[in-house]
Amino acid sequence: MDTVAMHIADGIIDGPTSAVFAAVALALLAACVVKARDDLDERLVPMAGLTAAFIFAVQMLNFAVLPGVSGHLLGGAMAAALVGPWVGALCVSTVLIVQALMFADGGITALGLSIVNMALIGALVTYGILRLLLKLLPRTRSGVTVAVFVTSVVSVVAGAAGFVLQFAIGGVADFGPGLGAIATGMLGIHLLIGVGEGVITATTVLAVATARPDLVHALRGHTLPHRPAVAGGAE
């Protein structure tokens, strides 16, 4: 999983394609700035900043997948579930901008591409799927777990599919018929990453939902049965 540690570098996708996606990303950011005010009073910016710091920290914390192989979260689905689609996408975009400007992680000209893959697809579109699943699945702890898990897997695979699409449009290399095989490999690897992301995201969201249900944006108006009290005591 270490191979996905870096975001898209400069020179992978050609200039015109990068420019188009940068325009899309700018429009998305503008929409986020406007809509985030509905979810989060502008004066409550400290909370959004701490959420961005949280996503940033989570991306830096590796967890073991197998001995010797570690992965880290992308955090798009987690951000969307916890703080909502607009603030979530805004926080993920902010993390990407800081990583490009300060850590040289991801090319500056590729920022638009990354923001579309991880904020627009990874957080915003994903949130719609999450709400839909929450509506369809039973309102239980396992229902929420399954919904968040599936959403996380979809967000990672869809983000990777976004990259494959961008590469097909403006990639520097022409794989011809080989593109299909590479796309399959890319999506397959990200399916595995997505399972790891899903397990962690679902457990994290459930942990927050247990302690402070009011803080899980995706569960607003969605009452969960309380976890049965630990056995023992009176008898």
Partner: peptide
């Protein structure tokens, strides 16, 4: 291993709560 990840994830949950409450 990935299937021992519960503690890590519970830690993430606690970290988020602390981050948000700090905010």
């Amino acid at each position: 291993f990935l299937w021992q990840v519960r503690a890590t994830a519970a830690g993430f949950g606690a970290l988020f709560l602390r981050a948000f409450e700090r905010g």
